[in-house]
């Protein structure tokens, strides 16, 4: 990588890290949403665009991640930030538990199956008194922490989630798993005949996507200080992730970056229009699928191929 590129990235990262001293609480909270939703969209895009796995019920991992953090922190009085790794592990274990029944389903059945899993989990949480049932749980361990530190701390966690998830996905795609994934996405039978363990590849992908989504969900609900079943196990999360991935470009690492910027730009400008805002959002997604199925990134790379993350393997 060119040193000027590295320098630009470091400056950008420096500004982002320094945001709590520059911007107000509202900016920080918005950025928490941006980074967490970016990570969720990145995970959805990883599943759909690289694994050919359409998970309509991806939001189940948001709820699991958020509830893991809230339950552990509130019940045992533990620092919520230290519970973030636990949220990752619990979400991944949950995903592992349901990987085998889920991957017996194919195509559309899998997509619907993940949605059913999310609904069942939501209803189970709704009926669990130890998780606060319908009222959910507060994050009472945040009480003793000053407002500035709380906001900054959550913001930094979200920043780490956004940058970290991009780093992890980039690292995966560049490695053996990335090559296996691409082959499975393109042709499962041929991938198997070439020695790729298709099921194992998909399960690993599923676990990585679950872990990223669970972590992002945990941080997103730290930001609101209260988790409820109806909000955290909500299809709205996955719908937003799909919108971002479709708009930016499914199956590209760059797509979710562009998509998340467009999504929040639209939201900040037009969300006051209520249901019209959602209608417009839907229309934009449909138009993108019809006119530019590769998303915004495909329009940018139509004339000249770009590979800023360097994940293609070229023979020199």
């Amino acid at each position: 990588m060119k040193s000027s590129k590295i320098l630009a990235m470091l400056v950008l990262l420096g500004v982002l890290v320094a945001l709590p001293w520059i911007g107000g609480y509202a900016t920080q909270r918005l950025m928490v949403e941006v980074f967490t939703l970016y990570a969720i969209a990145l995970a959805w895009n990883l599943l759909a665009g690289y694994g050919g796995i359409v998970a309509v019920g991806q939001h189940v991992f948001i709820g699991i991640g958020a509830y893991s953090l809230f339950f552990l922190s509130t019940s045992f009085g533990l620092n919520p930030w230290l519970m973030l790794p636990a949220a990752v592990v619990i979400t991944a274990l949950f995903a592992l538990l349901f990987a085998l029944p889920m991957f017996r389903l194919r195509g559309a059945y899998f997509a619907v199956g993940t949605w059913v899993l999310a609904e069942i989990t939501r209803i189970a949480v709704l009926n669990s008194d130890w998780l606060g049932a319908g009222a959910g749980m507060p994050l009472s361990t945040m009480m003793g922490i000053t407002r500035w530190l709380r906001n900054a701390g959550i913001y930094w966690a979200a920043l780490a989630v956004g940058v970290g998830s991009l780093g992890v996905v980039w690292w995966l795609l560049r490695g053996r798993l990335g090559l296996a994934l691409l082959s499975v996405r393109d042709n499962e039978a041929a991938a198997a005949a070439s020695g790729v363990n298709v099921l194992r590849t998909k399960v690993i992908l599923w676990l990585v996507a679950a872990a990223i989504t669970g972590l992002a969900g945990a941080v997103a609900y730290m930001n609101t200080l209260q988790v409820t079943p109806s909000a955290s196990f909500s299809l709205n999360w996955t719908a937003a992730a799909i919108f971002i991935a479709v708009l930016g470009g499914i199956g590209t690492l760059e797509g979710p970056l562009i998509g998340v910027l467009v999504y929040f730009l639209l939201r900040e400008m037009f969300s006051s229009y209520g249901s019209w805002y959602f209608i417009v959002l839907g229309c934009i997604a449909i138009l993108t699928m019809l006119l530019a199925p590769g998303g915004a990134w495909s329009l940018l790379t139509r004339r000249r191929p770009l590979d800023p993350f360097g994940i293609r393997r070229m023979l020199s």
């Binding site: 296996a180 082959s183 042709n187």
Partner: peptide, 30 residues
Amino acid sequence: CHLGIARTFQIPQPFLGLTVYENALVSATF
């Protein structure tokens, strides 16, 4: 395949989203 059995498909089944080199690299790697 790991035991050493390789086949070609009568109707070619390339990985269309990959380059020619990456197609062969999948076989060599896995």
